[in-house]
Design a protein around this nucleic acid. Sequence first.
DNA 1: GTCTATACTTGGATAGAC
DNA 2: GTCTATCCAAGTATAGAC
Lengths: 209, 209
Amino acid sequence: MFRVTFALKQRRAMKENPKREEILRAGSECFARFGFDKTTLDDIGQLAGLNKASLYYYFKNKEDIFIAVVLAETQAFISDLKTKTLAFSDVRKQVRFFLTERIRRYGEVIHLTKLSVDHRQKLEPMFDQVYEETKIKEVAFLTELLKKGVAENAFSFPEPSASVAESLFYLSDALKNEALRSAGRFISGEADFPGAIEKLERLLRLVFR
Amino acid sequence: MFRVTFALKQRRAMKENPKREEILRAGSECFARFGFDKTTLDDIGQLAGLNKASLYYYFKNKEDIFIAVVLAETQAFISDLKTKTLAFSDVRKQVRFFLTERIRRYGEVIHLTKLSVDHRQKLEPMFDQVYEETKIKEVAFLTELLKKGVAENAFSFPEPSASVAESLFYLSDALKNEALRSAGRFISGEADFPGAIEKLERLLRLVFR
DNA sequence: GTCTATACTTGGATAGAC
DNA sequence: GTCTATCCAAGTATAGAC
């Protein structure tokens, strides 16, 4: 329910506000290059072709721009992940790709989370919110994949596909987060994503026999 | 003459001022990560373990720190280049490596030149100075290589080694700069150094028969 | 030599003209 | 909707205590 409201707001914002979109593009570029702290509203404004004061017409403050950027990037990330997943012909390969790729690709998006300790604490609730949003969609997608696999007799489970999907998703996520945490959370650099992917693949080999 | 004075100043500064050295290390790290504009004196001070006001005991201002960092990095770059060059046994290979490697390696040092247009104009004379400094040393080194090659009968020229060295050096430099300029000078990113190296190597094959 | 205090400049944010 | 003017906080730089 919240999800629907949210998605609608997003879609409307995107379709009916080209300037807002432009600001998001500018923000995304600046945050990626400089990180949150080192990005100024002048940076974003100049890139978007607007006076910095005008940014406040579209967003509450700098953090709000950042949140919107993270949200948009996450959305695009998931959307692209689904497309790439469905390009595989074999359902097992789809499941495997979806679960491992989201770990690997997380490393590419993570530049957005170059935050000072101060801002990290302030923005953490927002991250959790985006995270919950995304989780629901991802689990739903994975559930569809599994159901399809069961229907095609590619594999079978003693439990409902939805529960299996949730378990597998949490597994993938736990491995991703562990890789992150061991490298200092929200600090880019040296998270061992390849290690996490390797662990996950070994586990999938067991699950699929 | 200027060169000698300069080198002495450098050496004394390095040997007798461990704190100054520490500031340069801190500055180098910050400038590399954030660029000149986005680096604050607090960033450097904290990393060097000094109050930002104390930085002014060692340096005139922020630009002065930046200049010293560029100088030190350039020095280290050339010194390392010489060592790596002399590791080759064949004189021809030494010449070839020296001329191509300095193009390739320039790309790694270039992060230091992430400057706003404003600061770029202000600091350009300084860059030219460092550049002239370095050029003399590099040409001298290349001249030695060529003389050695001639003495060993590895190759011969109708002109003095010093003039040939200068010509070859300018060639290498022109190719480097062209690659830079086509990508927007002092902007890192997409300079075509591989292309420049390729051109140079083809030319060297002609020069050495 | 290093720091605190402070003058001056730039960045984040608001008010209000157009 | 967008901008100028303006407030307050952070950044650059200086003066001066210790």
